[in-house]
Design a protein around this nucleic acid. Structure first.
Lengths: 99, 99
DNA sequence: GTCCATACTTGCAAAAAACAAGTGTATTGT
DNA sequence: ACAATACACTTGTTTTTTGCAAGTATGGAC
């Protein structure tokens, strides 16, 4: 199993990288993520559970029954990969006319 | 739609990035990819069609009924992102004992 | 106590992926 | 000429994942 396979097992599922990208802007609550990304609520709940289990993020209890999701060091370390993919995606769109 | 979303629309599907990673080592034939990655054959065919349509790779006819798949410039430009994800995946595995 | 917000869960349908088997074309061996 | 083999796929069918809609649990605010 390659290093890339190992990475994709954790963040290869749909929505996973988008959730991490959103959290790179700072800790956010469930509803914030949902509104920002448009993720179906059951998928968001599932992904957050998996990413927490993988040590990418943690739940921080706020007041009442609310909590914030925040990236761990491991999660923050995805910034480089996310930026690289984002740059590629941007280049992609520049030359769209040709396709 | 963010740049990351644009990128994931092209290479976010299962197997897509693994196929590109494999082709970073040079043009290869269908059977080579299948053996190297263990991809189900119908999925491999589907992904190759999609990646070709997206301009990530091209089919090069060899002799007879064989062809090689080779990355375009756009495909080669994924190297940075793949390397970054691979490095993250490798770090991930170093600290596995804790989970 | 009623209303609202937040953070989910549950049930079901649709889409995607995996598995298994088969097809068409050319090549090699006899 | 004919059988056996290689290559690049396609075609069903089952299983898994995703999406949609609705409902539940908890904690204030009024």
């Amino acid at each position: 199993m390659s290093d890339l396979t190992a990475a994709l097992e954790v963040v290869g599922a749909r929505w996973a990288l988008l959730i991490v990208e959103q959290l790179l802007e700072g800790p956010q609550r469930y509803g914030d993520l949902q509104r920002a990304l448009g993720t179906p609520t059951n998928m968001l709940a599932t992904r957050l559970r998996e990413l927490e289990a993988a040590g990418v993020l943690v739940r921080l209890p706020l007041r009442h029954n609310t909590r914030a999701y925040a990236l761990t060091d491991r999660g923050l370390a995805l910034r480089e990969a996310i930026d690289a993919l984002g740059r590629w995606g941007a280049e992609q769109r520049e030359g769209d006319s040709g396709r």
